[in-house]
Write a protein that binds this DNA or RNA. Sequence first.
RNA 1: UCCUCGGUAGCUCAGCGGAAGAGCGGGUGGCUGUUAACCACUAGGUCGGGGGUUCGAAUCCCUCCCGGGGAGCCA
Length: 456
Amino acid sequence: MVISLTKRYQELNFRMLWIEELGKHIGEKVILRGWVYNRRDSGKVRFVLLRDGTGICQCVFADSEVEKKYFELADSVNQESLVEVEGTIREFDRAPGGVELAARSMKLLADSVDYPITPKEHGIDFLLSRRHLWLRSSRQHALLRCRDTLIRAFHEFFGERGFILIDPPMITPTSCEGTTELFEISYFDDKAYLSQSGQLYMEPAAAAFGKVYCLAPSFRAEKSKTRRHLTEFWHLEPEVAFLDLAGDMELAEEMLSFVVKELLEGRSTEIEFLGTWGKNKQEKRAFREHIELLKNLNPPFYRITYTDAVKLLAKKGVNIQWGDKFGADEEAIISAVYDKPVFCHRYPKRSAPFYMKEDPENPELVKNFDLLAPEGYGEIIGGSQREDDLAKLEAAIERHNLPREPLEWYLDIRRYGTFVHSGFGIGVERTLAWITQTHHIRVTIPYPRLMDRIYP
RNA sequence: UCCUCGGUAGCUCAGCGGAAGAGCGGGUGGCUGUUAACCACUAGGUCGGGGGUUCGAAUCCCUCCCGGGGAGCCA
């Protein structure tokens, strides 16, 4: 079908163009194919907004210039019908994109009756149930283009630095961290679990390749119903040999600065659009301030120890004891002190996962960090130096009441040339939500998986 | 799992004991350039399900179902 269409355009001496390319073809006769985004009319003129995925083009049908049947089609064609429009591209300042198509004819290729997502406000339940159609809408379009750029930027950052991409398994025999709820699946005659992190598999890979990373889905079966949680999210996890905690934090801040720059440069149109879409005056100002913050997001970020953060919170009147975990409120208070993300590091060992390295300067602590994003977005990165002492790791496994046998392979890394190494995990959706100031991360992934929502 | 708010036209919502409403969307007509166009007319309802209170229930009570927001946990 595609081949024959292309041939037809050649025969007609027309050019089949994507809407994003139209600016370079002013004055040319072209054929556009796309879906009807919206339709407007005034007197003897009909406007059809055509969407082909790369952009939107206003097609103008003037009563005096087109045959009656085409004018009538332009007058009645349904939203999201697939059409082919033939005409001439011309400049028009007030049209979206600065150019418009002076239409000569239009052909209905596929009708669309009662398209549910009308140019109107809809509730989140309605939209999420129609996520497969919602993807066509302009805000979702902008967000997912930013997501594409963000993921490419992650790969570029690590690729340029000689990291090797190592894909972890998604089906695992046991929990990686032993704490969170896992999705159980049946695996022939056995039980298996969907991976909640690739980290334990990255550590042996770091011994094999030195600098490695993975970018894969992670699954969490916790019944978390908040704007920061998905049951399936994309998890980026670098792991580096001979890197200590300080180096790990440096890697994290360089990476974040890099991808933010790539987004600001590569997706300025989309980010500008997101800064105005559905926002009131105050929100628009807040967004502009956020963009200024992003523009100045150069290393180093701020650093504060857990112990100092507790003191800071106490000074702010928060009732908190050393050893308590930080909740969402505490994290918001800490991050609000700074105009850049802040590393909170060296948390109490008693609430830390088994694999984190004990701080030699204080065995009550582990050498880990959380990176807290400003503006209340909370933790977007969690990282640590890993325990490389076999005896200490074995003791930690025992302390956490974890079964030892499924972790023997992991202990091997400490048996055969153990080495200082560190890494971190960052959620693609949380990062994108923070950069684009999106309230809920469910719209930063094409098909969100949430508690009680698995359709479409 | 807990707390909290909600379910009324295709969509977004108002009505909160006394004739089922608005805006948008759909349909029809009007307007030479619209920007979620506008104007007029019009069709469209098991008020989430079940039970109860009452002369009378969308409205009050009980219960179940579904969804939103938040907490814990985490990225």
